[in-house]
Computed example of a mutant assay.
Amino acid sequence: MAFHEQRFPLRLSLTTSGGPGRQTDIVSLSNGREARNRRWRFSRRRYDVGTAVRSVADLYAVLEFFEARGGQLHGFRFRDPVDGSSARPGEAVTPLDQWIGAGDGETSAFQLVKAYGDGAAVERRPVVKPVAGSVRVAIDGVEQTGGFSVDATTGMVTFAAGHVPGEGAEIRAGFDYDVPVRFDTDRIKIDLEAFRAGRIPSIPLIEVIP
């Protein structure tokens, strides 16, 4: 399977339905308590882009993209309409948004991550598809204007020789990002009469690890 560094049409993704899901095993014990086990380390996003289709032109745009990806064969980028930035919705990206690591004077590469949490727990989710040119990096609160590169296909931030963060340095970053997904069907059924009557087709997407 290949991954196409191509983004699903942005104007359609912004009105798509969907979001994260998890898989948890729950066993009821004889004493009435439960044993719960998390099957997946991270949540997995699912979307339905059929809800974004409002015209025949929109429908054709989805079909064209579907054909170019070979149905389920190739993954692609998708902009989550709610969760596509290191900042909270409505806030501007800053280089201080997310903690991505602590320097030790030797490590030069750090994975972009986004934290989700409250007083009880924090989840740090790897971000592997940042938007090219959107990543801002800070060391100990000072934004860096050079000395590092970002791989937009993996989300790795790499510092050049002479710019490797020192022992205990706090590394933070801000960025926009896409979710790597694929179509979760090899068939799109179209009934134009039903479509014109307001019944939209279901066109599911599912997150993948590229």
Results as ranks from 00 to 15, higher is better:
Gly168Pro: 07
Tyr177Phe: 15
Thr154Gln: 04
Glu170Cys: 01
Arg88Gly: 13
Phe159Asp: 08
Asp151Glu: 08
Phe76Gln: 12
Gly166Ala: 13
Val56Lys: 13
Arg88Trp: 05
Gly103Ser: 11
Val122Tyr: 02
Thr153Asn: 05
Ala102Met: 10
Val157Ala: 10
Gly146Arg: 15
Val135Gly: 13
Pro126Val: 11
Phe78Arg: 05
Ala161Leu: 06
Pro95Glu: 13
Thr158Trp: 07
Gln111Leu: 00
Thr107Leu: 14
Glu106Ser: 13
Met156Ala: 06
Ala61Trp: 02
Ala169Met: 05
Ala87Tyr: 06
Gly155Val: 04
Ala92Ile: 04
Thr145Val: 13
Ser85His: 04
Val164Arg: 09
Ala173Cys: 02
Ala109Cys: 04
Ser85Cys: 11
Arg88Asn: 10
Trp99Glu: 15
Gly155Ala: 10
Phe110His: 13
Ala121Val: 05
Asp104Ala: 03
Gln98Gly: 12
Val150Glu: 10
Ala87Gln: 10
Gln144Ser: 11
Ala68Arg: 14
Arg125Ala: 02
Phe148Asn: 10
Ile171Pro: 04
Gly119Thr: 05
Tyr177Ser: 04
Tyr177His: 12
Gln72Phe: 00
Pro81Asn: 09
Tyr116Met: 01
Pro89Leu: 13
His163Pro: 00
Ala87His: 08
Gly117Arg: 03
Ala115Ser: 14
Gly84Lys: 01
Val131Gln: 15
Arg136Asn: 10
Ala161Glu: 15
Ser149Ile: 03
Phe148Thr: 11
Val179Met: 10
Gly105Asp: 06
Thr94Asp: 14
Val131Arg: 14
Gln98Tyr: 10
Gly162Asn: 04
Ala120Arg: 14
Glu91Asp: 12
Gly101Glu: 04
Gly146Met: 15
Val142Phe: 03
Ala120Asn: 14
Gly103Ala: 09
Ala132Thr: 05
Val135Leu: 12
